[in-house]
Design a protein around this nucleic acid. Structure first.
Lengths: 255, 255
DNA sequence: GTACTGCTGTGTATGCTGTACACAAATAAG
DNA sequence: CTTATTTGTGTACAGCATACACAGCAGTAC
């Protein structure tokens, strides 16, 4: 049964290896192996992360790695958790839950963008390691003062967490492209040329209209409070969405 | 430069192959190849999706596939777009933007969960194909009546889209596990045993407190409007978050 | 001390992967 | 009919994760 496999993977993440005294001392430890692997992923992308590359980085034979991790999957599990890092420490007095959550959200987005290869892994399927928990812990501390019930706190956590990780996709995609030597302009060109295939295509009337409208065709006719009509940057859109999420939380819980 | 590669990948997604008359008729077409590949991914997971497996499924030699797709990456691009499918057609009168958006969000979540292998691909990096656009189109139609400006519509789209795809992670992970023969109980057990490592660990005081509190320890002391104290299911949490997102949008634009 | 045990890193081998290349059969255009 | 072009095949290769047997080291038991 594959369920045991899950718990094996997980236990390796939490295992503090105490070596019994017999035999030669290992020349490195698991953390060193993980560091080498992350260096490769950071520098050359996930596809360059092979067992041979990691071994070479450490001056080892490939097979020596299997003394530290039983297989590549568990090595990657460890890389993911280490790469998540720990959320930045917020020193000084609390600034209110809303500001605290915003800091957390920005930090998480920045972390994800700085390691675009993380998003190439189905890392929800990976076991939850110490650092993954520490991000959750930090969030809960950010909203500790609100006095919400445990269940509500977890719901708020999964709401914000969901929004942040989902809406960072585009930024991550850009980060990956630039780390592969594609310029921002080239990337934007590629994305927009995909979108522009909708123009004048009867299958996409709304999209077509929006893409051709010189910002305002629709909003001018509308009596609604519209923000400035210029197109928004990715970061502005992220920020806008985050504010709406926080509004939603605020209105529900704190009227 | 890798930028040309992006546009090559994209153009294959939109290409309606008209074959010049010379040479033998191909026995199948691209759609057949994609269908075979998706059948494999659906049935045996992404790791079983090899060129050899797809070819075997079609009764071909492996190399024959390269007459239809120049490499595996472009085949997968096509699989992703096809697997996204088209959003369900909403017939009948519109029920108001809020209900329409909810329908869209549920449909998208259901689609993602029904094909957990989609989440194993960095598919934001993939080019945006016809079906990807059709989901965006459907969303825009859901909020068409609001009369928002094009820029605001796009921001609302990316907000809801971000929330839905990000917060479906856990459900997708479960779907993947069950499709691999792991029972719901086993999966829940694995996840919760990871979480429970936080208990009594001084690194995770909040998490520890929340996990040990029998639902109410914190909320009882709170004068805030709390929902029923029982733990929520994944779907309930998703729904709760979605409502908050919609609240946020509503208050901002239609306050 | 000496023998034993269990660990480390190495060397070699295997099966699977994506894919390059040359070719034969098939088909339409001239 | 000839010629050009395309389909599917066969063979080949490099790169991948990993199984297995082995050599040497470092403690433990006597």
């Amino acid at each position: 049964m594959a369920a045991e496999e899950l718990s094996k993977r997980s236990s390796l993440l939490w295992d503090t290896q105490q070596r019994p005294g017999r035999g030669p001392k290992p020349t490195v430890n698991r953390a060193d192996v993980v560091a080498a692997a992350i260096r490769i992923a950071d520098g050359e992308g996930l596809s360059a992360l092979t067992m041979q590359a990691v071994a070479a980085q450490l001056g080892f034979t490939t097979m020596a790695l299997y003394r530290y991790f039983p297989n590549k999957e568990t090595l990657i599990d460890a890389c993911v958790d280490t790469a998540l890092g720990t959320p930045p420490q917020r020193s000084g007095p609390k600034e209110g839950w809303r500001k605290e959550v915003k800091h957390w959200a920005y930090a998480k987005r920045a972390m994800l963008c700085s390691r675009p290869w993380l998003a190439e892994l189905p890392f929800v399927a990976a076991p939850h390691g110490p650092n993954w928990l520490s991000w959750h812990e930090a969030f809960l501390q950010a909203i500790a003062e609100t006095g919400l019930s445990p269940e509500d706190m977890m719901d708020v956590l999964s709401l914000v967490h969901g929004y942040v990780s989902g809406s960072s996709d585009t930024a991550i995609s850009l980060a990956r492209a630039t780390s592969r030597g594609i310029s921002v302009e080239e990337w934007a060109q590629a994305v927009s040329s995909d979108l522009c295939r909708a123009i004048n295509n009867p299958r996409y009337p709304m999209l077509s209209a929006i893409l051709t409208s010189k910002s305002g065709g629709i909003s001018e006719a509308s009596p609604l409070p519209a923000r400035a009509g210029r197109p928004r940057s990715m970061d502005e859109s992220f920020d806008f969405g985050l504010e709406r999420v926080l509004d939603g939380i605020e209105h529900y819980f704190f009227g």
